[in-house]
Design a protein around this nucleic acid. Sequence first.
DNA 1: CCAAAAGTGTTTTAAATACACCCATGC
DNA 2: GCATGGGTGTATTTAAAACACTTTTGG
Lengths: 163, 163
Amino acid sequence: MYGNLSATGVQDAYLEQLFTFGDPSRDPKAHVVSVAYMALIADPGVVRTSARKYTGGRWFEVSALPALAYDHSVMARHALGRLKSKLGYTNIAYNLLPRTFTFAQFEELYSMILDRPIDRRNFRRRILAMELLKRLPAKRRGPHRPAALYSFARRSPQVVEML
Amino acid sequence: MYGNLSATGVQDAYLEQLFTFGDPSRDPKAHVVSVAYMALIADPGVVRTSARKYTGGRWFEVSALPALAYDHSVMARHALGRLKSKLGYTNIAYNLLPRTFTFAQFEELYSMILDRPIDRRNFRRRILAMELLKRLPAKRRGPHRPAALYSFARRSPQVVEML
DNA sequence: CCAAAAGTGTTTTAAATACACCCATGC
DNA sequence: GCATGGGTGTATTTAAAACACTTTTGG
């Protein structure tokens, strides 16, 4: 599922429903049922919104979230947990990378989200063997050895046993 | 989470939230948002309800469900999928067995839900090695060789990599 | 020629799989 | 003593993990 987020100005984000929170006591003022979604975007860009209520929105490192209202930090935990888990058996990462990227970028994404070091050679072997990525003829040039560019074989949700 | 199901008369069932369905077109008469849950019980027992709307409720094999209203068959698919998947990394099965059971019952449950044959020796070795079950001194007597009885080491939700 | 990131193989270890016979009981 | 379901071990295959050096480029 894809959609727009009016409070942040993010467009066409991959959306994944996480959980529905309906505990009567979660909001003291009223019984509010909230259906929490996680949005994945490759580039955070600028937080832009026309909604007056949400001006001053900013991005935070997930490891350094400020105190959030209601049970919203529980929602954030759910989101991170779901993302970590889905990295392991789906191609969900295509929503978090540009259309083309180097293998190092791909690996760094995994390492960062899973919050653990990854053995470059073992990881590379497994990923390339499962044909999750397509190697492109182009290379990224820069100050060092040129890096091969890759893109996802399919940029639509699929399950692939990966980790 | 545990709760009662007023439409079926089931009490203290393990409940797991599956998904929230909110597509405006799912009910032509009104925009209804439904939060779907799966309930697990060890013994289906009798379907009993005081709700007039649900008299005549029955149990069905999941492989032979009748046509259901709205998107309810999608919900049933979600439930089965979630159950299959959670069998593999949690002790969720304790909700589907009596307090004590033979290893054969345990294995049959897995084989039935996963809908594939299981190698008895390999399965046994793995399950017993992870200390998911407690072997009881008692045995079940019957027409054949007495079978050792087991119970779950913990009858509360926990994650354990199993399959 | 140096710094920096990209790229590559082999050995060891652990886990999954495949597979068939003996055992204990009630009748 | 026989029918029935309970219980056990080993060899093979496959996958995961550990591990370090060479290559290519720009400056």
